[in-house]
Design a protein around this nucleic acid. Sequence first.
DNA 1: AATACGTGGCT
DNA 2: TAGCCAAGTAT
Length: 387
Amino acid sequence: MKSKDLLEKNKINIWPEEKIERFRLTLLTWYDENKRDLPWRKTSNPYYVWVSEIMLQQTQVDTVIPYYNRFIATLPTISDLAEASEETLLKLWEGLGYYSRVRNMKVAAIQIQNDFDGIFPKNHKDVLTLKGIGPYTAGAVTSIAFNQAHPAVDGNVMRVLSRLFEIDLDISKASTRKVFEQIISHLIDPVRPGDFNQALMDLGATICTPKNYSPELSPVKEFNASYINETWRKYPVKKKKNKVTEQTFYTLMIKKEDGEYLYEKRPKKGVLSGMYTPIMIEQGTLREKGWKLFNEDGSYKNSAEELEQNIEDIYNLKVRIKDQPKGIIKHVFSHLKWEMIVFEALLLEDNAQIKDLKWIHKDQFDQEMFPVPTQKVNKLVDTLTLF
DNA sequence: AATACGTGGCT
DNA sequence: TAGCCAAGTAT
């Protein structure tokens, strides 16, 4: 669909040129005086801008800063990234979440070596071919690093614009982003497109916030139709999320006498792919159909014998499991909740032939990459009483 | 088009 | 607290 059709269809009236120019000036003046001092704003190196934009996906600025500094200090060039091992990369990303982001960055770095002579491409279409770079990130990097007038529409921008123009479209729908990109293509400052995009995001992050929003404090309130019409509480329109799936796992900290603990590498697909967790058995998937560790009244059964039998059947490991759980750990993902009922166990006999098992000494925990649920379980190690 | 994919902060 | 929210992308 042509851009004009897209805006007309949604009854969005773009301002006259004179008003657009006043808006640019007002926004950029505010930005120049109020922009946040962020490490990636000290450079226009496209590699650094790229790293920051990937880290900032669905992640708050304060969380990203230390990760960003460590990442570029460790891997200062694109070729460093292309040659880095998966373990190095995951350790640098440990705790940030959405780990496919860093795996994709390595793929993209190799793409840059192979397809673009090792130099980050300037052409917007070329940038979009890079793994892990979608419409937002392509617009952000080309506008910020190369000063090209491409929209960079993220959640902030959609929230700001939906309030400015009283847009009723559901911002949680993928198709909606294109409408906002059309608006930006009209508004964006042709001289300072990178600053314009960042100004809109800063405005969304600091003033035009999701909660505790006070439109009268905005530097662009005179342009804000929802403020003028007192409809600002309606925007943005966003569909509520569905409830997340809840899963309960019997989680085993299996220990050897020498202080090593057993971990299992997760499958290549799915949540926390390729990362290590303790042995986890989902409640309801045990061999004994319907077997549970709890009595009907919610109290614990006084024996983990059946769980031991399942471990032997599945892993060829003979273990002695302590009867009472060591603790219950809850971890919330974006799309599911885990409840981990943690038991300590002692290895009696190891006939395992599954290669994705790994013994790790507790003194080595700091050197290993663990996802946060595993880190939470690991914290219980110091409290283990053993047998 | 809808869903999978982490984590931490805030109310 | 349970739910929402944060500079999205891949499939």
